Simulated assay, not measured.
Amino acid sequence: MESRPLRYFVAVAEELNFARAAERLGISPPPLSRAIRRLEAELGVTLFERTTHSVTRTPAGDVLLAEARVVLDALEAAGRRTRRAAAEPKLVLAVKADGDAGLLEPILTRYAAEPGSVPVAVRLCGWQEQPRLLRGGEADVALVHAPFDGAGLDTETLAVEPRVAVLASNHPLASRDRMELADLGLNAGTVDRHIDGARRGHGDLAQVLTAVSLGEVVTLLPASVAARYPRPGVAYRPVSDAPPAVLSLAWPQQSRSTATAALVRTATAVAEEARDGA
């Protein structure tokens, strides 16, 4: 199966209109229709139900749309990685600025001392952007907190640490030494959604902590953040039943880069030493 028919199929599957899909692709409708017919004949399935007024995907079409997007993204990512390798051999590591559990610097230092290591460019990114950068070929490896979309990625857990409540120092709960999720109006099933909403609504960590100090938001953060970012007006308090924060290293499943493999080994060793020394 070639990539062009897949691109044609994705355009029709997303537009559900042959004329709009043809315009999007820069071709006329008749050759587009013929290409879809050939693809259906090749696969031996019907991908679209067509009437004079509508086009809808069949169940087979739904499956192929999901698979085709993965394939086309992988092709584009391969091109990006190839161009980057030709321009300058290096690794790109994606990480949220405050999302490394204190491991980024020791990982980079240890890896730089390894024989045959290549330069590592750190790409600072937004909340949960790392999987997209990996699948798109814009990064080779990433540090990312769970939960995240791991489709097409291999992962290695580096750190599991408690979460703490982050609240204004004048908040009524700040006088407590410890609390439970229920005190914050949360339960184990709503924690991730709550954290995701707080981070997306306030951008980077500095903005989150400012919002906390102003009493606009209460959230949960990994304990390592509390240790590294003390701030006037912000109180960090243990939450006895909060699910832990899990930091993973992620990289594309199809990666065959020896440099990426070496960085993964180094990061795993550094994280293990950090756990043993804790």
Results as ranks from 00 to 15, higher is better:
G126H: 14
W127G: 10
W127V: 14
W127D: 09
Q128I: 05
Q128V: 09
Q128F: 02
Q128S: 12
E129C: 09
E129H: 11
Q130K: 15
Q130D: 14
Q130I: 14
P131M: 02
P131Q: 00
P131D: 03
P131S: 06
P131F: 02
R132I: 09
R132T: 12
L133F: 04
L133A: 05
L133D: 02
L133Y: 03
L133C: 01
L133N: 03
L133E: 00
L134V: 13
L134E: 07
R135G: 03
R135P: 01
G136L: 09
G137L: 06
G137W: 01
E138Q: 14
E138M: 14
E138Y: 10
E138D: 15
E138I: 10
E138S: 15
A139C: 12
A139T: 10
A139I: 11
A139E: 08
D140C: 02
D140V: 01
D140P: 02
V141E: 05
A142N: 08
A142R: 07
L143D: 10
L143W: 04
L143V: 14
V144M: 11
V144G: 07
H145V: 06
A146Y: 03
A146W: 03
A146V: 06
A146S: 13
P147Y: 04
P147C: 08
P147Q: 01
F148S: 13
F148Q: 13
D149P: 03
G150Q: 12
G150I: 05
G150P: 12
G150H: 09
G150N: 12
A151H: 14
A151R: 13
G152L: 10
G152E: 11
G152K: 11
G152Q: 11
L153N: 09
L153W: 04
L153V: 11
D154S: 13
D154Q: 09
D154L: 10
E156S: 15
E156R: 15
E156W: 14
T157V: 08
T157G: 04
T157L: 05
L158K: 04
L158N: 04
L158A: 06
L158W: 06
A159G: 05
A159M: 10
A159L: 11
A159H: 05
V160L: 09
V160N: 01
V160G: 07
E161R: 02
E161I: 05
E161A: 01
E161Q: 03
E161D: 01
P162R: 05
P162I: 05
P162S: 10
R163E: 08
R163P: 08
R163D: 12
V164I: 04
V164A: 05
A165P: 03
A165M: 06
A165H: 02
L167F: 13
L167Y: 08
L167R: 11
L167A: 14
A168H: 07
A168V: 07
A168M: 07
A168L: 04
S169F: 05
S169D: 15
S169T: 14
N170E: 03
N170C: 05
H171D: 13
H171M: 08
H171E: 06
P172S: 00
P172I: 04
P172Y: 00
L173H: 01
L173R: 00
A174E: 07
A174P: 09
A174M: 09
S175N: 12
S175Q: 15
S175P: 08
S175V: 15
R176D: 00
R176V: 00
R176T: 00
R176K: 00
R176L: 02
R176M: 00
D177M: 13
D177P: 13
D177R: 13
D177K: 09
D177W: 13
